[in-house]
């Protein structure tokens, strides 16, 4: 079971107090974009074994969205950070590098 810490209210809670919201850091391609970009935005998702970035909502708590970096194989959570970011903060990346050297996820590494 995942234990997540909500960066908005500071609560460390277990998984059932939260709700998963799919992949994080999606770039939106809207009207005027190419069909390929739009298809990628709508349908193409990562499905890694290892480091993954996800959106979560503290649904039974403060109700806020946040982002989490975790390992899909071990359920280890590397860190959580505010949703108002377009890429993982450096300290989270450093923590992942310390534990999973050579990791990469989409454009991040």
């Amino acid at each position: 079971m995942l234990t997540l810490t909500c960066p908005c209210c500071g609560v460390s809670g277990e998984e059932t107090e939260f709700h998963a919201g799919g992949e994080a850091h999606l770039k939106r391609y809207g009207p005027g974009s190419s069909d390929n970009d739009f298809e990628g935005y709508l349908f193409m998702r990562e499905n890694p074994k290892g480091v993954h970035f996800e959106r979560w909502r503290h649904v039974y708590g403060c109700g806020k969205w946040f982002l989490a970096a975790r390992c899909t194989a071990t359920l280890e959570v590397f860190g959580t950070y505010p949703a108002q970011t377009t890429e993982p903060p450096q300290d989270i990346k450093d923590k992942i590098t310390a534990k999973r050297p050579g990791w990469s996820w989409r454009d991040f590494a």
């Binding site: 908005c8 209210c9 806020k64």
Partner: peptide
């Protein structure tokens, strides 16, 4: 009577 902290804006 009083107040309780519900979320960062509530």
């Amino acid at each position: 009577r009083g107040a309780a902290w519900m979320s960062p804006d509530e």
